[in-house]
């Protein structure tokens, strides 16, 4: 990672951690000046950008985030059994506009099942889900058409909302650019790398401007830069009022979310990460 990449990552980190825009600009400008005048590897001078951003937050604090809006997703008492095995027992989650909720837990504890139930793609044995607004869903893998181009995926999704071809293509390419991907080529989806295919998958789910965005570990195959862009984009969507639920097993990202639902059996809890309201719902 060169100095420019390091500064870009630092900017994204500060934005995600909700450092006030002016203060963040000031910190990045100072770091850039320091690197230009003093030289040296930013990793040696400042350390990893995430760590430096953490130190900045400790030092100057964060801007107050926008107050969470109305409830967009309320899943209550979700129970799901496969044969005799109960995968989910009485899982409950409430997410408001402008919040990110992380669904975590061990392998096979029902994270993807919970998300599919929230998306209405699967029926639970008990419980119900109330959604206010439009739903967007990004599966863990698949969900694209092998023989179509990225632009054709955008046209297909856009047509569902009555969006004309040109605007749908432009919107898709713009959303892909946010993930550091130029989507306008004539490459069929089957020829895209695993990470790029996931970018297409993610772009499709945000294209319909959903009020509730459900993401099932969408970052499989992402490189470090894209991964940073991904969380940056989530922060932007959150700030724009989208309610986001993301299934993740990367526990080091939990400081970036507002709510954590742990589905590990016998440990199912909902924590409000930012408000530090622990406890079981």
């Amino acid at each position: 990672m060169n100095a420019d990449d390091w500064l870009r990552t630092l900017t994204a980190e500060l934005h995600q951690r909700r450092v006030a825009a002016d203060a963040a600009r000031h910190v990045v400008a100072e770091a850039a000046t320091h690197l230009r005048e003093g030289g040296g590897d930013p990793w040696v001078v400042f350390g990893p950008p995430q760590q430096y951003a953490g130190a900045v937050v400790e030092s100057i604090g964060t801007a107050p985030g926008p107050r969470p809006g109305p409830v967009r997703l309320h899943a209550a008492g979700i129970t799901k059994r496969y044969g005799r095995r109960t995968v989910l027992r009485d899982a409950t989650l409430t997410v408001r506009a402008g919040q990110i909720a992380a669904v975590v837990g061990a392998n096979g504890c029902g994270k993807s099942t919970f998300l599919r139930i929230c998306a209405g793609l699967m029926s639970p044995d008990a419980g119900e889900v109330a959604v206010s607004g439009r739903l967007g869903y990004c599966p863990q893998s698949g969900g694209t058409a092998d023989f179509l181009l990225a632009d054709e995926h955008f046209v297909l999704v856009g047509a569902g909302q009555g969006v004309a071809r040109g605007p749908a293509r432009r919107a898709g390419r713009a959303a892909a650019r946010q993930l550091g991907w130029e989507a306008g080529g004539d490459v069929q989806a089957r020829h895209l790398s695993g990470g790029t295919r996931q970018k297409l998958n993610l772009t499709m789910s945000t294209l319909s401007a959903p009020d509730v965005l459900l993401l099932d570990e969408p970052y499989q195959g992402f490189d470090q830069g894209t991964y940073v862009n991904f969380w940056d984009q989530l922060s932007r969507l959150r700030d724009a009022g989208t309610a986001i639920v993301v299934v993740t097993h990367l526990l080091n990202q939990l400081d970036r979310v507002d709510i954590v639902l742990d589905l590990t059996p016998a440990r199912e809890t909902v924590r409000h990460a930012r408000d530090s309201q622990g406890g079981r719902q």
Binding site: A119, G120, L121, L135, G136, Y137, P139, G142, G143, T144, A145, D146, F147, L156, V157, G160, Q161, G162, M204, S205, L207, S208
Partner: peptide, 15 residues
């Protein structure tokens, strides 16, 4: 068969 995984999300997209 190829559309099996795509169709549910198209349904969510307004189809």
């Amino acid at each position: 068969t190829a559309a099996r995984e795509l169709e549910p999300r198209l349904r969510l997209a307004g189809y």
